[in-house]
Amino acid sequence: MSGEPAKEEAPRAPSLPHRAARALSRLGGALSAVLILVVLVATAVSVFNRYVLGRPVMGIDEATGFLVVAIVMLGAAEALRRGDHIRIDILFAHAGPRTRWWLELWSLAAVISFSTLLLVASWHTVVFSRTFGAYSTGYLSIPMWIPQSTMIVGAILLIIAALAALLDLIAERGN
């Protein structure tokens, strides 16, 4: 069910917007991967601190929660580009090439619509949190708009990745 193989294996020379989109997705993916390592190290360090030093690190829990949001938001576009997002592809499996093309178009349109709505809503949330002056409740007590704004980044990355795939799809039809 893993969908299309990696787009970068397409024989055609990729267009400039395609390459730009790819670079952005990868950058987001790399940041996301680094954050996974950060969470891993932080959790391991907190175990060490508790048992060996007898002094737990404060705020690890809270930071981890925020980092999970960032990990997802930064990584989602790369996962989309690589066709990782799970889908039910019974229809795909039984469809001819023409129907498949339309289904693929429909599916990308769905991702773009969802991401755009998420972008609009995230923007409102971030702006509201800033003016309201909302802080996190745990030991970190950081302004909420900071972790929330990773959603804006994530939505934009997803839109770009989906648009690039859409352009490829349309070019494919041309051939």
Partner: peptide, 12 residues
């Protein structure tokens, strides 16, 4: 509408 414990206001 919602109900919160006072702790939840934190630094807000």
């Amino acid at each position: 509408c919602a109900f919160s414990l006072n702790f939840q206001w934190g630094k807000t």
